[in-house]
Amino acid sequence: MVASVTRECSQLKRGVLELCILGLLRRTESYAFDIARQLTASYEPIVVSQGTVYPLLARLRRAGLVSATLRESPSGPARKYYRLTRKGNVVLDELILQWASFSRAVDSIIEDAGGDA
C-alpha cells in the first residue's frame, strides 16, 4: 500500500513538474543547474532526482515553450540559460487555471476525509 502511494505520488509530481519549471522561468531566466537545484531545495522537494529535470527542459524547448541561450559564466564554462517564450507564457496561464480548479476539487474532496485520519 505504502509503495503504491509513493509511486502514484511520484507520477503526480512528474506531471506538476512542467508547471513548476514554467512558473520558475516566468519570474526570471535561469540556467539548467539552478532550475534543478531550486526544485529540490524546498522543504518538500518537487523532484527527488535532479537529473529528471533536464529531459523535461529539453522537451519544453523542443515544444517552443522555453528558449535557451548559451552565456559566459563568471566562473567556469559557459552556461545555458532558459527563458519563457511567448507561447510558454500562454501555456503557463492555461496550466495555472487548470491547476487552480484541479487543486480546489481535490481539496474539497479530501477535506472531509481529513477528519477521519
Binding site: 543547474f33 537529473g51 533536464y54 529539453a58 524547448r61 523542443r62 535557451a68 567556469g76 545555458k80
Partner: peptide, 23 residues
Amino acid sequence: SAPASERQEIVDNVTAHIDAALD
C-alpha cells in the same frame, strides 16, 4: 532512442550539473 537534439541537450546539462556540483 531519444531525439538527437534532446539527447545532446540532456547530456550537456547533466555534464554541466556534475561539473558545477563538483566545483
